[in-house]
Design a protein around this nucleic acid. Structure first.
Length: 234
DNA sequence: GCGACAG
DNA sequence: ATCTTGTCGC
């Protein structure tokens, strides 16, 4: 009720309010962590969202994996109405309400969360992963598939090779090669986890694909949840 | 200068 | 994100 971290009741409805909310939360982000290391084991959750714009529906999924074995420990989904349009820089306001619902349905909170998108690599340094980390208090980082406005030197050709991800002159993340000879992913700190630990977890989660297992499983699950909701007729 | 811009 | 077939490869 006096929680400074945005109760659902105050979710912004306009772009101006959303940007103001980002400016308010920005100084609260912990960029250094260190957060859990891979050696600490524990659990890591992946979250993702799918949309049906025709029916105004959004489905979110949270999939929890064991860090050491990559086995699925638990999963949850949530379906609701879209709460915000897609606006570059304001993605969190579109995705997070459903994601928070899905996370709330887990029996046990994960030790770490991986987002499909950016953390502090963001115009106001408050991308999806930073925002979700603040709202949950759980260490969180982002793995994005495209660099778009950010610049970077191409990483070496091998898995594990990395270069700085730059926003102008500012270092905001890493371009990280997760598979030999495959296009890199873009890792950025979200909240309460260091960039080094985020990159180590990303490599741990990519034993055979470019994208983390967490992201792949959450993506597939939220699509199934959306299809099921449509089938049930909403 | 204008538009594009994570998903 | 989503619209969308087949196809090459591990």
């Amino acid at each position: 009720m006096t929680n400074p971290l945005t109760p659902a009741a105050s979710w912004p409805r306009t772009e101006a309010d959303a940007e103001a909310e980002q400016q308010r939360l920005r100084p609260l982000v912990d960029r250094d962590g260190p957060g859990p290391s891979v050696a600490d084991g524990g659990t890591v959750a992946g979250v993702d969202v799918a949309y049906d714009d025709q029916r105004d529906l959004v489905a979110a999924a949270a999939v929890v994996l064991d860090v050491a074995t990559l086995r699925t420990v638990e999963q949850a989904t949530a379906v609701s109405r879209v709460a915000f349009p897609y606006v570059p820089g304001l993605l969190a306001f579109r995705e997070l309400p459903a994601v928070l619902d899905a996370l709330a349905r887990l029996r046990t909170a994960p030790d770490l969360i991986v987002c499909d998108g950016y953390g502090i690599a963001h115009p106001r340094r408050l991308g999806l992963a930073s925002h979700l980390g603040l709202l949950t208090g759980i260490p969180c980082f982002g793995v994005a598939k495209t660099a778009f406005t950010f610049t970077h030197q191409p990483p070496g050709p091998h898995r594990g090779d990395r270069t700085p991800l730059l926003d102008g002159g500012e270092d905001v993340g890493r371009a990280l090669r997760t598979r030999d000879g495959v296009k890199p992913v873009y890792v950025s700190t979200g909240h309460a986890v260091s960039l080094d630990h985020a990159c180590a977890h990303t490599l741990n989660l990519t034993p055979r694909h470019r994208l983390p297992e967490t992201t792949r499983e959450a993506d597939s699950l939220c699509r199934r949840a959306l299809a099921a909701a449509v089938r049930a007729g909403q």
